[in-house]
Amino acid sequence: MDKLSVDVCVIGGGPAGMTLGLEVARRGCDVAVLEQTGHFNRSFRGETISPDAVSLLARLGILESVTDAGALVNRKMKLTENGRTLLEVDFDDFPHRHRHPLDVPQPTLLAILAQEAGRHTGFALLRNTSAVGLLETDGAVAGVRSRSPAGEQEIRARLTVGADGRYSKMLEMSCLPYRRTPLERDVVWLKLPAPPDWTSDTYHIRIAGGRHGLFIPTYPDLMRVGFNIPKGGLQNLRRAGLTGLHTRLDELAPELADLVRDSIRNWSDTSVLDIFTSVVPRWSRPGLLLIGDAAHTLSPILGQGVSHALFDAMTLAPLLSEALAKGPDEVTMAAREFQRIREPSLRRSRSLQLRQERMFTFSDPVRVALRSTFYRSLNRSPWLKKRLLGSVFFQLQNR
């Protein structure tokens, strides 16, 4: 069996893993990133990047490359109920240097991160490679056994980082306890050609009773659409045939009826996301640390997943590079310090998302009326709007 030794072994080549690999390699450490696929073409993955995360792309030195490669600037967010606007947000109104969310295809972002990381001799991206087991020494994780088309390999590492997403195998292998909470609904995702009479700079949220849909302009000329179904309700939806799917979208965006029927002609044109949150009380054990969705899965509401992945990686990298220069005890302490720094922000985002999810499930007339009143009141108060949304999109830049 082949053997490889590095300072840091990162499992998962998504936004968290690739950003961490880049930042650790920039600091002179040897790092291997294992990515189980041979490409970055991930369908229906998070593509919305919050203004704070845009500021981090600037700090990484890749913002210009990302925008040049293709990104849509999101200038407004509009929430509509049965044709009536309840809330409209203009990101130009916020007093920050990076005030607009971006919609960036994930393959574009990951390819740029990989290209930048590849400039450093200590960085290796191992494609088509999966971690199949942990290596342990005296109760501490000492790396992983990996498998690729070339065979199995031992990768020894001073720290192994699980960045393998919401269905993390590293979380399972770590034996760290966790609590997974299913939310009341799942989301069906699909893509449409950009409607010619919709502006390409506005993120639309449509609600109708207990149903809601997200309509997100996507580079270069598409729209990502996500609409809720009851938890585990895909079978019932499919029993009604594509006509049932078309009808569900008609309730939220009747003006797109012809476009939906022309574009969605098979269930393979859709994807279903199982919505849950995960709480992992301890993100680490000696020799191993979880980051991104592996440590703290969020819901897709308000597009926070990619942003928190970037926050994680850029918070961890300086702590880790300093600790690696000292010893294993310092690496363990750095992993704990990383969690201490990041948890408050994650708790705020999770709490806000759960409240928003509950509000979107309201279907009885009284609670629907209260929800509408809340959004209208928020819309009438520029101060309150900036304060509430600032806590979502501008946590980092508000410091």
Rank of each mutant, 00 (worst) to 15 (best):
L352V: 14
V366N: 04
V141H: 00
W267F: 13
P196N: 09
G226A: 09
E330W: 02
R180M: 01
G46W: 05
M223C: 10
S55L: 11
L324M: 00
V161T: 00
D52Y: 09
T129P: 07
W283S: 09
W198H: 12
T160I: 08
K3C: 09
A53P: 02
P105W: 12
G14M: 13
E251N: 13
V187S: 03
T129L: 08
E23S: 02
D30I: 05
D68I: 00
R127K: 15
S65Q: 10
T121K: 09
N82C: 03
G292A: 09
L222K: 13
R27H: 10
R185L: 03
P300S: 06
G21Q: 02
W189Q: 14
P318L: 02
R371Q: 01
L113K: 07
A295R: 05
V66E: 04
Q356C: 06
R119T: 10
R282V: 13
G38L: 11
T361S: 15
P344L: 00
I11H: 01
L102K: 06
T247C: 05
S146Q: 08
T277C: 11
S55G: 15
P95C: 15
G210D: 08
N82K: 13
T160V: 12
R358P: 01
M77E: 13
P193S: 03
G14K: 14
T315S: 06
L79S: 06
A208W: 14
D52L: 07
T85E: 15
R27W: 04
F40R: 09
T160E: 06
L346K: 13
D197I: 00
F374D: 06
W283A: 12
R371C: 01
D92E: 08
A194R: 13
H100A: 10
L176C: 07
A313Y: 07
S50I: 04
